[in-house]
């Protein structure tokens, strides 16, 4: 993927008087990770603006990104709901059969203090990913349709971004693989439909994150008329 860095503001901003500085602030972008200041320069679609100091991606616009993210989000929502209740693993040992859904897995922690773990697990695998998807659709649909932002779109997007590290669907998918090997010599283990849905979901979530350019979303929430 072609990428380029935004140029340093060092020369341009050196001796700006305070009043001109204030108006010049709109043309700056500050790296949130290392505080490096750059003259804002919007990369073309498919290009990335990368911080030169810490290599964080600052802007990464993609063509039709909003539409694609929404499409993927709807698919993810359907998959999560399906994967939550359908069986994802089945076990068969000497006629003793058991099929579990992801909700069953979360609820495996039941009784006393284990309830806490049940809630945390269910949240990390199902509810937080689901909430993020719903928030994304809510925020992006008006933006894509060139409408004014939805009510409370800004706190909604904030929440969605804050929840990002706590959405652990892909980690759960790898956990499935580890669990399979652990019980492989104990019993016959098979995959239910939810397992495949979950695999697709992981791929989609990763794709969605790669299309999401936070800066572009903030920018269109700030200037709804444009774009």
């Amino acid at each position: 993927m072609p990428s380029r860095t935004v140029s340093s503001i060092y020369e341009g901003m050196r001796d700006f008087p305070p009043d001109r500085l204030a108006s010049g602030l709109d043309h700056l972008i500050i790296c949130p990770r290392c505080d490096a200041a750059y003259q804002l320069e919007r990369p073309k679609n498919g290009e990335r603006a990368v911080c030169q100091r810490c290599h964080k991606t600052l802007i990464a616009p993609r063509r039709n990104a909003g539409l694609r993210i929404i499409a993927v989000a709807v698919a993810v929502l359907v998959l999560i709901m399906g994967a939550a209740v359908l069986p994802f693993l089945t076990i068969d040992a000497a006629g003793n059969k058991n099929a579990v859904s992801i909700l069953d897995a979360a609820l495996a922690f039941s009784g006393g203090p284990m309830i806490f773990l049940a809630l945390v697990t269910a949240a990390l695998i199902i509810f937080i990913p689901m909430l993020r998807v719903i928030l994304t659709i809510y925020v992006l649909v008006p933006v894509v349709l060139d409408r004014p932002p939805a009510r409370h779109a800004i706190p909604a997007f904030r929440l969605s971004e804050a929840l990002r590290p706590w959405s652990m669907a892909e980690i759960f998918a790898i956990g499935c693989a580890v669990a399979l090997v652990k019980v492989a010599d104990l019993a016959q283990v098979g995959f239910g439909p939810a397992f495949w849905m979950f695999g697709a979901l992981v791929v989609l979530v990763v794709a969605q994150d790669s299309y999401m350019c936070k800066w572009s979303v903030w920018n269109s929430l700030e200037h709804p008329k444009k774009s």
Binding site: A94, A108, I171, A179
Partner: peptide, 22 residues
């Protein structure tokens, strides 16, 4: 975040391996 994998493995095993006496 990947440390959480162990918790998920425990959750999966505990819900899956409930084969009565076996």
């Amino acid at each position: 975040r990947w440390s959480m994998i162990d918790i998920f493995v425990v959750a999966i095993l505990s819900s899956l391996v409930q084969l009565r006496t076996l």
